Amino acid sequence: SDYEVNVNGIHHRFHNISEELIKFIEEALRRGEDLREIIKKVRELLG
């Protein structure tokens, strides 16, 4: 049904976003950045 496609589409989009965010955060932590600064950047990215 349309509803299922829609829900799956939304889930898929969020899954991709969270994968990208996790990579972004892991790389920043590897560079020794402060978690609070990383979260601030993530918030800015998400608008």
Rank of each mutant, 00 (worst) to 15 (best):
R31T: 09
I10F: 04
E33Y: 04
Y3W: 09
R30F: 11
E37C: 06
Y3V: 02
R36G: 10
E4C: 06
F14E: 02
R13I: 15
E26N: 09
L35W: 06
V5K: 01
K23Q: 11
D34M: 11
R30W: 12
K40T: 15
I10G: 06
D34V: 09
D2H: 07
I10V: 11
H15V: 09
A28H: 13
K40I: 14
L21G: 10
L21S: 09
R31M: 08
H12M: 03
F24N: 08
F14Q: 01
L29F: 10
H12P: 01
I17W: 01
E37D: 13
E4N: 05
E4G: 02
R30I: 14
L21C: 05
K23W: 11
L21M: 10
G32K: 11
S1I: 15
R30H: 15
A28F: 10
I39C: 02
V5L: 06
E20I: 09
R30D: 10
E44F: 10
N8M: 00
I10S: 12
V7I: 12
H11P: 02
G47H: 11
E33K: 08
V7N: 05
E20N: 09
I39N: 03
V42E: 02
E27R: 07
I39P: 00
A28D: 10
D34E: 09
G32W: 07
K23F: 12
L29I: 14
I39M: 02
I25K: 00
R43A: 15
E33M: 13
L29M: 12
E27H: 12
K23Y: 13
L21E: 09
E19R: 06
K41D: 08
N6E: 13
E19G: 08
L29D: 03
E26I: 08
E27L: 09
E44R: 09
E4S: 04
N8E: 08
H15G: 09
G32A: 14
K41I: 11
H12Q: 05
G32V: 05
F24W: 14
Y3H: 03
G47K: 12
R30K: 13
I17S: 04
L29W: 04
S18P: 07
I25E: 00
E4Y: 01
R43F: 09
G9T: 02
F14M: 00
I25C: 02
E4R: 00
E27Q: 10
S1P: 05
I39A: 08
S1E: 10
N8S: 10
S1M: 15
I38W: 03
F24R: 06
I25P: 00
G32Y: 07
H11R: 09
S18F: 05
R31S: 12
I39T: 07
V7M: 06
L46F: 06
R43C: 03
F24G: 05
N6K: 09
L21T: 13
L46D: 15
V42K: 02
